[in-house]
Design a protein around this nucleic acid. Structure first.
Length: 398
RNA sequence: GCCGGGUUAGCGAAGUGGUUAAACGCAUCAGACUGUAAAUCUGACGGCCUUGUGCCUUCGGGAGUUCGAAUCUCUCACCCGGCA
């Protein structure tokens, strides 16, 4: 993998460039479609490509559970298995440490509401769940499919990811809650940092000296704390990573600042991926503060739940106002769905539980976000970023 | 015409003499969704308002038995079977 920067936006951390992998290039900034189980839900690879998506990110934990990395490997690896010829990423399973552990049943997700939730209340709600348990060696899970006891460590996360064979893989990390204390975040960071070193060692062993094949990104943690975020980035920067992911669960309000702290410490020449973030305002803030790539389930998930992005904001088109609308989702959108179907039809498909709606709305949402990031890239190249951002945000959040 | 079964919220349906009817589905109407336990989840769903520990209404219609009836009796209406 190589990374080349084309243009730095003046007075900003933002830049445009390209990541080149064995399976093709990614023009950055870029939005990476999420295909957790080796499929972007509801879409064929051709449809994914038609939305403008340049790469797909799959998940180590989920593919390890089902069908198992050996099956994927025997099919020729992730690319052949899912018939996606472009670049691929795999997440390490680190997020599942969080979503099946601390966040299990607590209502806390990638982005917290900002309301403080007491730890006692959280413990109460999740006390009866068989949640993931973290120790310094690794993490014990209980399969959400059959309850079987499983274990992920930095070493086996690397082994699994090498068998899956994505172009870019992530170090195994601990994603923490935004409600966690400084004391806990420090402890978690120390663990994640130790794991990072073990991931590099195992990755080198598995690569057998051929580093051009699979690239490894380290994951910055540190929660909401500036000192820990900077420390994490600075220390990871010293290690032999090909790029970096920025992880953790955020409060909406400190999304931009946390990213800036980190990107000010990371080496300029290596790509930075903001893990799991993808709302329009967050994408602008991330890019402005130095992010090159994003992945997020939001476009495809909200599509399956009846919501769409438009230049006038997010809308739930399963609601009654859209029952008889003859307009497309967005008159400014050039996606397959907007060019061929009106809202009354899409509303009807949703209300009838016709599975086609999941495909049509996913196409629209992926196209929308991908196009937005494409336009942002152009605005960086033309030094019109700030005007583009303020125009978009003013209309979107009006 | 006779015999039997039935009629509870927009629909289906629980409740079959004893707090305050309407559980549970579906439909409807909203809200949520950010490295996917998610085509999912949450809430509202007889009426009214001043939104409360509030008021009113309601088990096909009517009459009766009873301290007390959606529940038992009679009667009328309608629906579904069966037999003529």
């Amino acid at each position: 993998m190589t990374f080349k920067i084309n243009h730095h936006l003046k007075n900003s951390l933002a830049r445009s460039g390209a990541i080149t992998t064995p399976h093709g290039s990614i023009e950055t900034p870029a939005f990476i479609a999420v295909g957790t189980a080796a499929t972007v839900k509801a879409l064929t690879p051709e449809q994914v490509k038609s939305t403008g998506s340049q790469a797909v990110l799959a998940n180590t934990y989920h593919l390890h559970l089902r069908p198992g990395e050996d099956i994927v490997s025997k099919s020729g690896g992730l690319h052949d298995f899912m018939n996606w010829s472009g670049p691929t990423y795999t997440d390490s399973g680190g997020f599942q440490v969080f979503s099946l552990g601390e966040a299990f049943g607590s209502g806390v997700s990638k982005v917290a509401s900002g309301e403080e939730v007491s730890i006692d209340a959280q413990d109460q709600r999740i006390s009866n769940a068989k949640k993931a348990k973290i120790d310094d060696e690794g993490v014990s899970f209980y399969s959400h499919i059959d309850g079987k006891h499983l274990r992920l460590t930095p070493e086996n996360s690397m082994q699994i990811q090498h068998k899956l064979g994505a172009d870019i893989i992530f170090a195994f990390d601990e994603c923490t809650s935004p409600h966690a204390s400084h004391e806990y975040q420090l402890k978690a960071w120390e663990r994640t940092h130790a794991w990072a070193k073990r991931c590099i060692k195992e990755h080198h062993k598995l690569s057998k000296g051929d580093k051009s094949y699979i690239s490894l990104f380290g994951v910055v943690q540190g929660g909401r704390f500036e000192d820990l975020r900077r420390l994490s980035a600075k220390e990871l920067a010293k290690l032999d990573f090909d790029g970096f992911g920025i992880g953790g669960s955020f409060n909406k309000s400190d999304m931009g600042t946390a990213v800036r702290w980190v990107c000010e410490e990371l080496p300029v020449a290596k790509p930075r991926h903001l893990l799991g973030i993808g709302e329009p305002s967050d994408i602008f803030d991330g890019i402005e503060n130095g992010i090159d790539t994003f992945d997020c389930v939001s476009p495809t998930r909200i599509a399956r739940n009846g919501s769409v992005y438009t230049y006038d904001g997010r809308k739930n088109i399963s609601t009654s106002p859209y029952r008889s609308s003859l307009a497309p989702i967005d008159t400014l959108c050039g996606c397959y769905t907007c060019e061929n179907f009106n809202l009354s039809y899409l509303h009807h498909l949703i209300k009838s539980s016709e599975i086609l709606f999941t495909t049509l709305l996913s196409i629209h949402n992926l196209h929308f976000i991908t196009k937005l990031v494409d336009d942002i890239r152009e605005s960086i190249n033309h030094e019109t970023f700030y005007q583009f951002k303020s125009d978009f945000i003013a209309k979107y959040y009006r």
